[in-house]
Amino acid sequence: MQIKSVLVIGAGTMGRGIAQWFVQQGLKVELLDGNSEVTHDAIKSVNSSWEKLQAKGKFSQEEVLSFKSNLSASTWESFNKDVSLVVEAIIENLEIKTSVFKKLDDLCHEDTILSSNTSSIPISSLAKELSSARKEKFLGLHFFNPAPIMKLVEVIKGHWTNPQIITFFEQWFKEHSKEVAICNDSPGFIVNRVARNFYGEAMRVVSHYDKERITEVDTILKECGGFRMGPFELMDLIGIDINYSVTQSVWNSFYNDPRFAPHLLQKQMVDSGRIGKKVKGGFYDYE
């Protein structure tokens, strides 16, 4: 089993970060998004990131030129059907993801491994409509934002996943300087299950939008709790809409257990369009 090439589906924040990281491991990577403009903007953004890292002495000019040549935009019609690994990083929606994987199952070579970067949807639910052979080559690979920097990756075995694939990826990621957490196929896996209370209790403390209280909670958790970012800063970075979607998914999967219940404040932020850094405004302003 070898990983020689990667197709990343979804060119949003996570998709482009995952693509960047795989390229930096010496692999050829194709980036595909339903919106071609998003794909090309993502590649420009990644190239700009490499140029900044070169200026800081993190990479040589030769390395950056190699990286750029190994990252390309692709389409459903043109992507390499013999690609070694596909990583899906699109909207956190079971039906949409399932339709994408059914399409990939039909198009990709029989040896291609399919994976999802889902942060909350059970892997077996995503695999249930795939062919029997493909189910064995399907797993969860959950990266964290920003993917090129964050060391942790959750490797999730679905009901049908061949155990040898889990063992392979555990070793492969360790060889490429990632910290690996092998997870059971349960809602939210490890990190996002635990994190629901990190966000949820913080919102219950502030109760409603109060900039002073929000700043106070973030400051206390950083200065006293040792967290690098407070819960409100982190939600702004991730995207409050994405965070809210994950919260709903975990809550629903646990039969509306109050521990995981979404908070009205989060819904109000999403409804108002103030969803974080990507729109220059969330719990904080980023003008």
Rank of each mutant, 00 (worst) to 15 (best):
V83F: 04
A261E: 13
A133M: 05
E30V: 05
K103H: 06
Q20H: 14
A195C: 12
R16S: 15
V8D: 15
D271T: 13
V64G: 04
V217M: 10
P163C: 15
A11G: 13
I238C: 06
S131I: 07
G226F: 15
H159S: 11
C108K: 00
E62M: 05
N145I: 00
K151D: 02
Y255L: 09
E51N: 14
M14G: 08
N145W: 03
S272E: 14
V46M: 03
H40A: 04
Y286N: 02
E30D: 11
V180D: 03
S45E: 13
S253W: 08
V246C: 14
I156A: 01
Q24R: 05
I3G: 14
K137D: 03
F168I: 11
D285C: 06
S48V: 04
F138T: 01
H159Y: 10
G226K: 13
A89C: 09
S48C: 08
N256F: 11
V217N: 02
Q25M: 12
K103P: 01
V191I: 09
A181F: 08
L130E: 02
M235H: 08
L139M: 09
V155M: 02
R196Y: 03
F168C: 10
F22Y: 13
I123A: 03
I166H: 05
E88F: 07
G140A: 03
K278Y: 08
W21P: 00
K174Q: 08
A89V: 04
I165K: 12
K157W: 00
E175A: 15
G239R: 00
A133C: 06
V250P: 01
Q171K: 15
E201Q: 09
F101Y: 07
S72C: 09
M269H: 07
I240H: 03
V191H: 07
T247W: 00
K102R: 07
K68Y: 06
T39H: 09
K222I: 12
K102W: 03
F227A: 14
S49T: 14
M203E: 14
D218E: 11
H142R: 05
K178C: 05
L141R: 02
I113E: 01
S36D: 12
L104F: 08
S84Y: 06
I182A: 09
N184L: 15
V155C: 04
K157C: 03
A133F: 07
Y286M: 03
K157Y: 00
T98G: 06
